[in-house]
Simulated scan of single mutants.
Amino acid sequence: MTENSTPQHSDEQEEQPKNRLDAWIIKISQALSLLFIFTVFISFYEVLMRYVFDAPTTWVHESASFIGGSLFVVGGIYAFATDKHVRVVLIYDAVSNRTRRYLNMFHHIVGLAFAGMMAWASFTMVETSWFTPWGEFRLETSGSYFNPPYPALLKALIFIIFCILVMQFILHIIGEIKGLRNNKDV
């Protein structure tokens, strides 16, 4: 394969974290992904208990939903850290590397605004799910027989993830600016 026939945006390049935060997110996310296996096991346990022993559990469904939802939320920052987020490749792959940097800047600025607004909105959700209107600490629960505080915990996780996403966008904007200043990939 000649130098001119190599793709401009290789998978190998996409796998490399762009900063320390991305590297940390990738490492933590890969470790957390093992919780999917745990979710399969407890779901199998529920099926076994319900249909073989006629003794359904009270905790498996909500716990599996909480774990799956939490991992789904973490998947957003993982996708951004590994550069696997959605983009219009028909346009992106047809332009020069310099133009890609400008497209990335536009994406990151819009993404930063979105993530900032979502962080604020999720903070207000956390506030109401962790405290009563008169200010006492009380975690919102599911209201089921098991009644875990999963809704409050998931809302807090969403807030934390959006704060991390804000930091990711800022670091990616800085990286693109440095790349443009150094005239890389021109």
Results as ranks from 00 to 15, higher is better:
46 E>R: 07
104 N>A: 07
186 V>H: 08
175 G>K: 13
59 W>Q: 07
161 I>V: 15
135 G>D: 03
123 F>N: 01
152 A>I: 09
122 S>D: 05
119 A>I: 04
53 F>I: 11
116 G>A: 11
154 L>P: 03
58 T>A: 06
31 A>G: 04
165 L>E: 04
111 G>W: 06
11 D>V: 04
22 D>T: 02
125 M>N: 10
35 L>E: 03
30 Q>N: 14
12 E>C: 05
34 L>D: 00
40 V>F: 09
61 H>F: 09
109 I>S: 03
135 G>M: 07
148 P>I: 08
107 H>S: 09
21 L>V: 11
16 Q>G: 05
92 Y>G: 04
73 V>K: 01
38 F>Y: 12
76 G>Y: 14
153 L>W: 12
182 N>D: 14
145 Y>Q: 12
143 G>F: 13
186 V>P: 01
98 R>A: 02
61 H>M: 10
148 P>T: 06
33 S>V: 01
84 K>Y: 10
89 V>S: 09
177 I>H: 09
24 W>V: 13
168 Q>V: 13
41 F>I: 05
157 L>H: 03
32 L>N: 05
39 T>W: 02
50 R>E: 07
47 V>W: 12
71 L>W: 03
122 S>G: 04
67 I>C: 02
77 I>L: 12
168 Q>L: 15
101 R>C: 00
97 N>M: 06
